[in-house]
Design a protein around this nucleic acid. Structure first.
Length: 481
RNA sequence: GGCGCGUUCGUCUAGCGGUUAGGACGCCGGCCUCUCACGCCGGUAGCACGGGUUCGAGUCCCGUACGCGCUACCA
């Protein structure tokens, strides 16, 4: 019986953190924090074909950006390390030998080609496609012969007979008939452990209490339980969480658009919003609330409220939720987040107060930061072009010219302009011309921004300043084009 | 093919034998308003199918269909 929960997130370093993996990490982390347990980061880099060392840093970056801290991991102290499987090969070798010595595993000299042939034959004859145990009863002499012939053995686990049943924390009782599981390889011929083996050795040695992972692993679970038992170790609790799917209900992949945490960061999503959104995929708060702080997520985390079925990743809802976070955010903080996007677009940000006002004006018009580039464009152009049909129509109206002349006359009476002064001016213009409402405001908006939509006009005017306003309206007076 | 898991509005979900099947996103309409957006109000739409069990089934059981996963010397 373990006294405190120990959970692990065990990604393969194959690139940036995938959305699905991120959710697994989040749920592990939330659970660990909920029970005051330990959250461990373990890098599963046994496959040299797929894993790249530099990708480990990307995983760190993505996790850090999300605000997920691990208690034990490759870069921390910890009595259960090392936390990278590529540094634990001797361990796997040792345990594989142990199983072999105990008769629970055996050398297999079959080549991939032979295995493939056996599989084909089995399918053709309608038999089970499990390994036929050809190498189980090799005599010493036969084994020597194969070794002399240059064959390197893989190690296969001798699967015992019977049933494997376990109580999945989210899915309930799951049972398998072991006869459907063939003897599987635990050590590849090159001395590298396979996933199921390395995973079991590590989970056992690291004293993992709860294995929380995607439900694409349920079919691996009986293998892992059998191995754990063969090793004489304690079997952990398993919690298989539902997969995240694309709009076509297929496993989320590149074809579905942005699928890595990194891409959402680049577009200017808020980490807390992403965590909130991902948490709500297959989980819900009893309160029915949807906007939930990390503190609440930790407090309310509960396996019994995780649903059993897969969830489709719906970007529209993420956008809405992210927009909620942006709207609630302190302008100061939002400005800090927006500046890199302004810089990227080549917008001047040296006047911090001005930048802040622009951000404030746009705060409720964007769902994620990248959208502010388009929205802020009007504040950083000296000349305007009017190419929207609606905007041109506004300028062509007779009343618009009257508004412009009157507006310009009013401007002569002042030397600076702000929100209040502008409002007064508009009142005067209205009084003088008799024009009001849309016909009164739209011409000014189009003259200043070239567009028929945008932030509140008084705010735009103040940010532009008197001179720019005057210049732009003068440019258009007499008819644009 | 075998094995496993799953199936409530288009999507995310609530529901844990008795509900007009609730909420959220989206969409549509309205209000606010110089515009868009925000916000607010309202509307749209769902228990995969067939058998049981029960006085009563979205809820329990069994089938079927469909989907996904595993079936690798990938993880």
């Amino acid at each position: 019986m373990k006294h405190s929960a120990r959970v692990r997130f065990a990604p393969s370093p194959t690139g940036h953190l995938h959305i699905g993996n991120a959710r697994t990490a989040i749920l592990n982390w939330l659970f660990a924090r909920h029970v005051g347990g330990t959250f461990i980061l373990r890098i599963e880099d046994t496959d040299p074909e797929r894993s790249k060392s530099e990708y480990v840093n990307r995983i760190y970056e993505d996790l850090n950006w999300l605000g997920i801290q691990w208690d034990e991991g490759p870069d921390t102290e910890g009595e259960f390390g090392p936390y990278r499987q590529s540094m634990r090969f001797e361990l796997y070798q040792r345990y594989a030998n142990k199983l072999r010595e105990e008769g629970k595993a055996y050398n297999c000299y079959c080549t991939p080609e032979e295995l493939e042939q056996m599989r084909k034959d089995a399918v053709r004859e309608g038999r089970q496609v499990t390994y036929n145990r050809k190498c189980l009863h090799l005599s010493d002499a036969e084994e020597q012969e194969l070794i002399h012939a240059g064959r390197k053995p893989a190690v296969r686990f001798k699967v015992p007979e019977g049933q494997v049943e376990f109580e999945d924390v989210v899915k309930g009782t799951i049972s398998f008939d072991v006869e459907n599981i063939g003897d599987f390889v635990i050590m590849r011929a090159e001395g590298i452990p396979t996933y199921n083996f390395a995973c079991v050795v590590d989970d056992s040695l690291m004293q993992i209490s709860h294995v929380i992972r995607g439900d694409d692993h349920v079919s691996n679970t009986p293998r892992q339980i059998l191995l754990t038992q063969a090793l004489g170790m304690d079997v952990p609790l398993y919690a298989h969480i539902p997969m995240i799917l694309g709009a076509d209900r297929m496993r989320l992949s590149k074809r579905h658009g942005a699928t890595s945490v990194d891409e959402y960061r680049a577009k200017g999503y808020i980490p807390e919003a992403l965590i909130n959104f991902l948490s709500l995929l297959s989980w819900s708060s009893q309160s029915g609330d949807e906007i939930l702080s990390v503190d609440r997520l930790i407090k309310e985390f509960d396996f019994s409220r995780i649903s059993k079925s897969a969830a489709v990743f719906n970007v529209e809802k993420l956008d809405w939720m992210n927009g909620q976070y942006i709207r609630e955010m302190d302008v100061e903080k939002l400005t800090q987040l927006a500046i890199p996007f302004f810089d990227k677009a080549g917008y001047e940000t040296t006047d911090y107060e001005k930048t802040k006002k622009i951000v404030a004006a746009l705060q409720d018009k964007i769902d994620y930061l990248e959208q502010i580039i388009d929205q802020a464009k009007i504040f950083f152009q000296d000349h305007i072009t009017i190419d929207e049909t609606d905007a041109r129509a506004v300028i062509r109206k007779d009343t618009s010219q009257k508004v412009f002349w009157s507006f310009l006359r009013e401007l002569r009476n002042i030397d600076r302009i702000d929100v209040d002064i502008f409002r007064n001016i508009m009142k005067s213009v209205q009084k003088e011309t008799g024009i009001m409402g849309r016909d009164l405001w739209m011409p000014i908006r189009v003259a200043l921004t070239g567009k028929v939509h945008g932030p509140e006009l008084p705010v735009v005017i103040e940010l532009f300043g008197k001179d720019k306003c005057q210049r732009l309206v003068e440019n258009i007076v007499g008819g644009y084009r």
